[in-house]
């Protein structure tokens, strides 16, 4: 299932003297079964855009099409709930949404809101707990007794329990240590590749963009200023630097190599590509 924005504007404090634009004339399509990255500085409109993906916010003008539903400013607030089952959002520091007595019940909370019986919901919860890589022994433990990284996983399981088609992740690894970060990024890739979930990742880490995304949207001051594949985006490295967004470390390294005098025909994005490039350079001269 795809999501399409057509000329979406969004204003905060509509109809008051303090109205400010959150989004300006955004048109984009997030195709079915894709891995998309959304990047931009704090305050660029990323979180406003995110909240349009499951109709937590409705556009002030323009329209958002989620699957076959069209959301406009006039759309009634009722009956939006079914959309939230299809598009699951894991917000920043998602561990702050946990509230139940046990991990199991907390994960089951979502499915029960959508009408699953307690038994069904707990069964889904058990499955999701292992999906996010936590041992079953945590099922009956209070979520507040877990470490920060484990709590984050429980929160993600709570969103996955809705069995969404699209999983939206707002800086899901912020504050985690390197090992947990890696494990979590691997989990999302697996969900995408093995279970066919579309992933929409909001991130500041250009390395994650390079390593995982198929398509990138860049926001600045509520506007879409660039989009393309990671290769297209980072090939225009001057643009990325000018807008203070940075580059993947491998790309940055390769640019410095180019300055030193190495031949860098295509810019590498991933570390493995950089290793190939360097080995090739150093062995070709040998011949």
């Amino acid at each position: 299932m795809a999501i399409t924005f057509k000329n979406v504007d969004y204003f905060y404090n509509m109809g008051t003297p303090m109205a400010t634009a959150g989004l300006k004339d955004i048109s984009l399509t997030i195709p079915d079964n894709s891995y998309t990255a959304i990047i931009g500085h704090t305050g660029s409109g990323k979180s406003t855009l995110l909240q349009h993906l499951n109709a937590l916010l409705k556009p002030s003008s323009g329209e958002v099409q989620i699957d076959s539903r069209v959301i406009t400013a006039e759309t009634n607030n009722k009956n939006l709930k079914s959309l939230r089952k299809k598009v699951g959002i894991v917000f920043q520091f998602a561990e702050h949404q946990l509230f139940e007595e046990t991990v199991g019940k907390d994960i089951a909370f979502g499915p029960m809101n959508f009408g699953a019986s307690q038994a069904e919901a707990l069964e889904i919860a058990r499955e999701m707990l292992t999906t996010v890589g936590l041992d079953e022994k945590y099922f009956d433990v209070s979520p507040f007794d877990l470490s920060g990284g484990q709590m984050r996983r429980v929160a993600i399981a709570g969103v996955l329990a809705l069995k969404p088609d699209i999983l939206v992740l707002d800086e899901p690894t912020a504050g985690l240590d390197p090992k947990s970060r890696q494990a979590m990024m691997d989990l999302f890739l697996e969900l995408h590749e093995k279970r066919g979930l579309s992933i929409i990742l909001v991130t500041h880490q250009m390395d994650d963009v390079a390593d995982f995304a198929e398509h990138v949207f860049i926001l600045e001051q509520g506007q879409l200023i660039k989009s393309g594949t990671p290769q297209e985006i980072f090939n225009d490295y001057q643009f990325m630097l000018d807008h203070g967004l940075g580059l993947p470390k491998a790309t940055q390294f390769a640019l410095q190599m180019r300055q030193q005098g190495f031949k860098v025909p295509t810019l590498p994005l991933k570390e493995s590509e950089l290793v190939d490039l360097i080995t090739k350079q150093l062995t070709e001269t040998e011949q």
């Binding site: 959002i89 702050h96 949404q97 979502g110």
Partner: peptide, 18 residues
Amino acid sequence: DETMAIMNAQRARGVDFG
């Protein structure tokens, strides 16, 4: 801000506040 953030997270999990 935090209240709004938590409300949004729970709405995303199917809670209907109104």
